[in-house]
């Protein structure tokens, strides 16, 4: 099922949701069959102004390496390895990364085998064949197999330093819960969370979820941007980094690459948020530690 890089199209394309959804058959989701590459390649749209940024080969090699390096140690570990290197290799503006058609193309045309390897459940309910959920191929940015890693690297990095993103991706609950919250679009907030992970203040999935809920709820009354202001990344520096792709070496396998030098997050702002969150977290109940479990599971409105 693994495909040779030589058989692949040279450049990335765009695959609209409708086309992707139509081709996500049960066979594709269970890994028993491959998506129809030729038909998909024909239906894909070209990316305007194509250039080396859209080369498929470096990506495919990256996925192959991720799989090779983590086949034995455990596939969840591949996330924190792949996220920074994917972000380094696939240099996109946020506007480009927000287009699901690009991620559909990567998942269905470039590396469907990787999606299945990474996300196929070991067992399935009611005796059916285990299958990957469709949103790993075609889904929102916090679900789609590659989009979630790229966005995790983008939202958790500290300027050119990918280490906070690595810390974030080591915890599946950060990827599953925190990544989807609007509050982390504020860089000092995102960095405060990863710092608490690095410092071991939050460790377990339940702790991460409790922290996430506390931060999210407090954000209904607090404007974090006013408490800890951040000028935001330097758009020109980011542009420069994108344009520099041809000069840059391939992502190193053993060491972390350097991300875009678009400005570190102000230390003081991170301190403010971290202090705040530590206090909130200390007061937050963590599920499992509570005296009794919630009885009801009401619906969100």
């Amino acid at each position: 099922m693994s495909r040779h890089a030589d058989d692949l199209p040279e450049q990335l394309g765009l695959l609209r949701d409708a086309v992707a959804a139509r081709n996500l058959t049960r066979g594709v989701l269970t890994g028993q069959e491959s998506p129809p590459f030729v038909a998909l390649a024909r239906e894909a749209e070209r990316i305007k102004g194509a250039g080396s940024r859209w080369n498929v080969r470096p990506l495919r090699e990256l996925f192959d390496d991720a799989r090779r390096l983590h086949d034995e140690s455990g596939r969840t570990g591949a996330d924190s390895w792949l996220a920074p290197r994917l972000h380094y290799t696939l240099r996109l503006t946020r506007a480009e990364a927000a287009d699901p058609a690009l991620w559909n193309y990567i998942a269905l045309v470039v590396a469907p085998d990787y999606v299945v390897w990474r996300h196929l459940p070991k067992t399935a309910r009611d005796g059916k064949r285990p299958a990957v959920t469709a949103d790993r191929f075609c889904g929102p940015h916090y679900k789609q197999a590659f989009a979630r890693l790229w966005w995790a690297a983008e939202l958790f990095r500290d300027g050119d330093d990918y280490r906070p993103a690595v810390a974030a991706c080591r915890n599946q609950d950060v990827l599953n819960t925190v990544l989807r919250l609007d509050v982390i679009d504020h860089r000092p907030t995102a960095r405060a969370v990863t710092r608490m992970l690095e410092d071991g203040i939050v460790r377990t999935g339940r702790e991460v979820n409790a922290l996430a809920t506390a931060i999210n709820a407090a954000a209904s009354t607090l404007m974090y941007e006013v408490l800890a202001s951040d000028e935001g990344p330097d758009a020109e520096a980011f542009r420069y980094w994108m344009d520099e792709l041809d000069m840059a070496p391939p992502a190193p396998r053993k060491t972390l690459p350097a991300g875009p030098g678009d400005g570190a997050i102000p230390e003081g702002a991170v301190d403010v948020m971290a202090t705040y969150f530590e206090k909130l977290f200390a007061e937050a109940p963590v599920r499992g530690k509570e005296p009794k479990d919630a009885e009801e599971v009401p619906i969100d409105v």
Binding site: R94, A95, A97, A98, P100, H141, W151, E154, L155, D182, D185, H186, M223, E225, V226, S229, G232
Partner: peptide, 16 residues
């Protein structure tokens, strides 16, 4: 403050 947001691009800029 003025707040500009877009969900899909994780855009959130806050301007005093």
């Amino acid at each position: 403050v003025a707040v500009l947001t877009e969900g899909v691009s994780n855009l959130r800029t806050v301007t005093r």
